[in-house]
Amino acid sequence: MVDDDPSIVAVISDILAAEGHEVVAAENGQEALAKANGEALVLLDMRMPVLDGWGFARRFRASGKRSPIVVMTAAENASRWAAEIGADGYLAKPFEIDALIAAVERHATKPH
């Protein structure tokens, strides 16, 4: 999960860990690119310092990575931004934890 807000990163990591997922956190797009390693899903904030969501998605796809991306943003136009980067889904902040869990279940690549 990529987000510059440490509180959000912490709570979502806790929630997904409790669901049995392994979470790797990055605070911006650049850090996320460096850490990317065949994840089942990328949870992506859009407005971030250093490298934002748009920049991350472009470079992530350009490097041939296929992991699904779910955009999480507090901006009004979450769906448009998700469409702009060709994301698989989006979560508009603030979201219910059920919505988060459902989005992860739905979009994450299932292990073969």
């Binding site: 807000d5 902040k93 603030p94 988060l100």
Partner: peptide, 11 residues
């Protein structure tokens, strides 16, 4: 306003 709310709601 939504950024802290996200943590609040989820937490």
């Amino acid at each position: 306003l939504k950024t802290p709310l996200t943590t609040l709601v989820a937490q």
